[in-house]
Design a protein around this nucleic acid. Structure first.
Length: 306
DNA sequence: AGGTTAACCCGCACGC
DNA sequence: TGCGTGCGGGTTAACC
């Protein structure tokens, strides 16, 4: 499942391959790929454009084009974006191994050097949109919170967006408007590293919990990038190869195995419809609110300030 | 309004 | 062998 580390891996591999290349011809085999926009509008908009940068925001892949527009792509669950096409400069390039893969080809962007970008997706949840120069920022901002690896992720920020929230921490982390790029895998891994229970209400965190969670999120995501993403199922990088992060999971997909921290069998529950793994005794639940039964005698500053 | 659930999809695992 | 069923999971829409 492509989450931030998987998308980041793809973008890092993609950049040196396609930067500065011109998009010569575009084939969109599945009209739903660009929904609700008609494929022809996307084709017409990007054919002839040069790729000026390759970027990522949350789980979105962004190709900035030389007219100020940007092609935005999302892999959802089973999408893959792979560099294919002719061999050039002695480099070994990915080639589709089977026709089974070809039948899942939803779109192909042919570049001016003979290579192509192939978007394949068995379940067809993946999506693309062409956004004008003024549209990209607002589009992303209304969907995504902060970038967890950009330095914006601080305990204070987490406490701020979690304030008053009763939703479980797991649901809180999966909501892209809080922190961008975390999916089911890295939510489980981050919560485990933070020793936090997936069902604890997000608003029950205190500063030390938020500190732990920041660290857990960053550690889990960075390890994911370091390992080139997780290939549980369909995920392949831009070269068509598997990542290795699935071998580094501490709890995700490890139900019943020994928890690496507490040694007890890893438990699996369902939280807001998502499979959720955690250490049964090392990820304790937080209580709803640590109500101080204190007389207001001492002049303690408790004003919210904003 | 915040939180939960369904819909979107289809390959796959499973049961009979 | 073959058919029916159910599940998964990111995002959005709809619901409570």
């Amino acid at each position: 499942v492509p989450e931030l580390p998987e998308v980041e891996t793809i973008c890092r591999q993609l950049e040196p391959e396609v930067l500065g290349r011109r998009i010569k011809r575009v084939e969109i085999h599945d009209p739903r790929w660009t929904r609700p926009a008609p494929p022809v509008s996307v084709v017409a908009g990007i054919e002839g454009r040069r790729i000026e940068s390759v970027g990522r925001r949350g789980k979105y892949i962004l190709l900035a084009l030389d007219d100020g527009s940007a092609l935005l792509m999302h892999l959802r669950m089973t999408g893959n974006l792979v560099v294919g096409g002719d061999r050039l400069g002695g480099e070994r390039l990915y080639e589709p191994e089977s026709s089974a893969e070809d039948r899942h080809l939803r779109a192909e962007l042919h570049l001016d050097d003979g290579r192509s970008l192939r978007f394949t997706d068995p379940r067809r949840f993946g999506h693309a949109a062409l956004l004008g120069s003024g549209e990209l920022g607002p589009y992303l901002d209304e969907r995504l919170g902060i970038e967890p690896l950009s330095g914006e992720l601080t305990p204070a920020h987490l406490l701020g967006v979690a304030a008053g929230r009763t939703a479980p921490l797991k649901s809180f982390l999966l909501d892209q408007r809080n922190v961008a790029g975390i999916g089911n895998i890295y939510a489980d891994e981050a919560l485990h590293r933070s020793r936090l229970h997936p069902l604890s209400p997000a608003g029950s965190m205190r500063i030390e919990h938020a500190e732990d969670l920041c660290e857990g999120i960053v550690d889990a995501l960075e390890l994911g990038i370091h390992n080139g993403g997780s290939s549980i199922d369909d995920y392949r990088d831009a070269r068509g190869e598997q990542g290795s992060m699935q071998h580094e999971f501490l709890v995700h997909t490890r139900e019943g195995e020994e928890c690496p921290r507490c040694g007890e069998p890893i438990s699996r529950i369902v939280v807001s419809g998502r499979s959720t793994s955690s250490g049964p005794s090392c990820q304790g639940r937080l209580r709803r609110r640590p109500k101080r039964r204190r007389r207001a005698a001492a002049p303690r500053r408790r004003e919210a300030g904003g």
